[in-house]
Write a protein that binds this DNA or RNA. Structure first.
Lengths: 145, 145
DNA sequence: GTGGGATCGCTAGCATGCAAACGATTCGTA
DNA sequence: TACGAATCGTTTGCATGCTAGCGATCCCAC
């Protein structure tokens, strides 16, 4: 079981590194790519909403948004109805990058999983879903105190 | 395929977070735990050797080693035969933490994978091995220039 | 034996994550 | 209506990774 998790960690790291390399060719880092992915579908979300969808904390989104703002990928706008809220809007530059980036991601994913059999895909998917459910639903049950 | 990778990423992150929580109870962070894991088996490795075994870069090991030195988990010693080398040696404190930490990791791994069937474990393992081989052996083949 | 290339650890700067503390705004209630 | 609690974004500080560049040491060829 420990070995299974070790393999999972190693594979994920290799994929993340490869993804960062691919995205960097389009002027976007791997974390920023995740923000784009959501905003391409739903522009004008708040940092808090974005954080919830990405399963990260709000400060992480805030910092990433600041870097993306410096890079000219998005702009911040105060919500006119609620002064506490900030809405993140993509720039034309970010919209133009959509096609090549999605293409690059699709290509990378297919390359990585090209040699998997149908059984392996199906069982790996259900196994990962079970692990995710297990880690979110049930308590981690840490040993001592 | 993209969805498969998304699940893989999510599962790995949940596992890493849970691992960090568990390790923190023993005064060790998740990255430091990986260093301990290797040094428990082979004490006195150099930062470069350690980096190769962990699949990280040397600066990463150097920084982690510095934090672990501050935490009293290891000491640096110059190699008497080769002045360029630094050898990392665990302290009694680090040796004493071995049993509880290994127990915590074993428990976490079993908890996470408790509901997997034998087919799922087997196919997930072979799938991950294929992905790893694919990402290390063959070229990433990034689209444009 | 000496000089130049190779090897090694370290530092600096950046990106991505977290938790904790802070400030501003909003909303419900007295 | 005004005040306290809740909500939200931001800042700060830390851990983990990376690349690039530096300085010290070693080793081989001359």
């Amino acid at each position: 079981m420990t070995e299974l998790i070790r393999l999972l960690t190693r594979a994920q790291k290799l994929l993340r590194t490869a993804s960062d390399d691919a995205m960097s060719r389009h002027g976007v880092r791997v974390g920023q790519n995740l923000v784009l992915e959501v905003l391409w579908e739903t522009d004008g979300l708040t940092p808090g909403e974005l954080a919830a969808r990405l399963h990260v904390t709000t400060p992480t989104v805030v910092n990433t948004a600041t870097r993306m703002e410096s890079a000219g990928l998005l702009v911040r706008r105060r919500d006119p109805a609620d002064g506490r809220l900030v809405r993140l809007h993509l720039t034309p530059k970010a919209l133009a990058a959509r096609q090549p980036i999605e293409e690059a991601r699709r290509r990378l994913a297919e390359h990585a999983t090209a040699t998997l059999t149908e059984d392996e895909r199906r069982h790996m998917r259900s196994a990962l879903e079970k692990i995710i459910e297990r880690m979110t639903e049930s308590p981690p049950d840490l040993g001592d105190a």
